[in-house]
Design a protein around this nucleic acid. Structure first.
Length: 270
DNA sequence: CCATGTACCTGAAGGC
DNA sequence: TGCCTTCAGGTACATG
């Protein structure tokens, strides 16, 4: 489910809720979700700060860190003390704070993971630079493309070069920059690479402003749906006319994923 | 190095 | 009303 804009929305909200709250205990209802790999105990530690790298949520405690990945259907919900009980029909892990509030991990498909670690670095070794990191530039992005012979869809989905893009925002960014998803990364011209970089930034910041996209399961930390799904040009728009040329948007299987694009507007670089 | 398939899970939707 | 298949915002791992 969630890609960079959805994860960013959750992190921004949690920044206003979690710092300073002290963990009383942790309830684990599905063992595989919570990997407790730190020798330091989690009880009695306070949340210090929040961070994000790609789709990973980082919750820094005093002596260790929690790394959360929502995968397809994970939700991180903040349960205020005393207010109505937040909906969590598939609760897997609950972090209960001493003041009576709680952070709930709800996840229908059980793919989501929470790692309790000494240090975040080990887990993030193979994750590329965050897609909205201000130090990432169009020319830096072009250099990364030059280093790879993967098709551009797989390149963007891999998280190895740039982290945070998923199936929705890859398809939207490729459409808006007029690049065919099967294009070979190191064959993409400098000007097209610049276009792709700029459209990635535009697509992601627009989605963040609209609190992410809800297809089915995504909810923010308050349990609310996003709004960016109302503005897709190609994702799940197969059959509808392309906004540029009017030909129907196509859906194919590519890089193992449903892939939406316009075959007349998007140029194939090979 | 790269592409493809499978596994991990549940539930919704569509075909018959 | 079933029953069966396919598909889903992701990633890790095995195999050519």
């Amino acid at each position: 489910m969630p890609e960079l804009p959805e994860v960013e929305t959750i992190v921004r909200e949690l920044k206003s809720y979690l710092p300073g709250r002290k963990i009383k205990n942790v309830t684990v209802l599905w063992d595989k979700t919570f990997l407790n790999l730190s020798p330091v105990k989690i009880e009695d530690q306070s949340v210090q700060s929040l961070g994000r790298r790609g789709k990973y949520i980082l919750i820094y405690l005093e002596r260790s860190v929690l790394i959360v990945h929502l995968r397809m259907t994970g939700q991180l919900l903040f349960q205020q003390k005393g207010s109505g009980v937040i909906r969590a029909d598939h609760l897997r892990v609950a972090f209960n704070f001493q003041d009576g509030s709680a952070l709930l991990f709800n996840d229908v498909r059980k793919f989501g993971r929470i790692y309790h670690l000494q240090n975040a670095d080990e887990k993030l070794q193979k994750v590329g630079i965050d897609a909205v990191d201000p130090t990432l530039t169009a020319s830096g992005f072009y250099r990364m493309l030059q280093s790879s012979k993967m098709n551009i869809k797989a390149f963007l989905l891999s998280q190895r070069f740039v982290a945070g893009m998923g199936n929705i925002y890859v398809d939207e960014s490729l459409f808006r920059s007029k690049i065919h998803p099967a294009s070979v990364s190191d064959k993409i011209k400098r000007s097209a690479a610049k276009r792709l970089f700029d459209e990635m930034q535009a697509v992601l910041s627009f989605a963040i402003e609209h609190m992410g996209s809800t297809i089915s399961d995504y909810r923010d930390a308050n349990g609310k749906v996003g709004n960016a799904q109302n503005f897709f040009y190609v994702y799940q728009q197969q059959g509808t006319p392309c906004v540029t040329c009017g030909n129907p948007i196509k859906k194919i299987k590519h890089a193992g994923r449903g892939t939406h694009f316009c075959e007349t507007c998007q140029k194939l670089y090979v």
